[in-house]
């Protein structure tokens, strides 16, 4: 564990806490993409199957359980909470799952380091995570008034991936034989997906304006 990895994990955790607090405090999920949250649920379930087979550390296990529980809580609120579910932008959140899930599944079957169920699902989760934010970004673009917390949520999520890249560089330089090309390339793609958002987020912050993304 190095400082970049820890900072990345904490940023990831913070992004989810921001989203949970926002929804709980405002009783609203306006501007939040249920599709992205459900894709993250698929990502976490497929990746953390090793909770049953492989113990890495208490930190690792606890964080995995927190990510799973918090994501399923968000989905539950958006689908079933009496007040919150009414505020969901169903008509705007139209991204099709299959455009992301199917290509990632095919890619994971072809490009993996071992053709076993566990390994293919793990690789699938790596590919899917890289693009899971897309429905959220599309929804943000369609939302005229992006509230601060939704903007912060996406910004923190993007920062988490950028910090992971620093973590990989650090590990590559300090650990012998540490390399994981599929994870690195997916992580870089995932970070690039955010660059456009980062640009407008920082611009609106510097100009003290409300965040809005050009159509």
């Amino acid at each position: 564990m190095n400082i970049f990895r820890l900072a990345g994990d904490m940023t990831h955790l913070l992004s989810i806490i921001v989203l949970l607090l926002k929804m709980n405090a405002t009783r609203s999920c306006r501007g939040v993409s249920l599709k992205t949250q459900e894709l993250y649920a698929v990502v976490f379930v497929c990746r953390y199957l090793d909770l049953f087979t492989n113990f890495i550390s208490l930190y690792n296990t606890v964080m995995k359980l927190i990510f799973l529980a918090s994501t399923f809580t968000i989905i539950y609120w958006m689908r079933f909470h009496k007040v919150i579910r009414v505020t969901y932008d169903r008509e705007q959140d139209t991204f099709r799952y299959q455009f992301l899930v199917l290509p990632c599944l095919v890619l994971a079957m072809v490009l993996n380091s071992e053709f076993t169920v566990m390994e293919v699902l793990w690789t699938f989760s790596i590919y899917l995570e890289a693009v899971a934010i897309l429905p959220q970004l599309v929804l943000l673009q369609r939302t005229n008034n992006i509230d601060n917390l939704t903007g912060n949520y996406v910004f923190l999520l993007g920062s988490y991936r950028a910090l992971y890249i620093l973590n990989w560089i650090y590990r590559f330089m300090t650990e012998p034989n540490y390399r994981q090309y599929l994870v690195w390339i997916s992580g870089i793609v995932q970070t690039i997906v955010y660059i456009d958002f980062f640009y407008y987020y920082i611009k609106s912050w510097r100009n003290n304006e409300k965040l809005s993304l050009p159509a």
Binding site: N54, N60, R179, V183
Partner: peptide, 10 residues
């Protein structure tokens, strides 16, 4: 921990 071994991240 090359390739498949590197599953210690979140």
């Amino acid at each position: 921990a090359a390739g498949k071994g590197a599953h210690d991240e979140l």
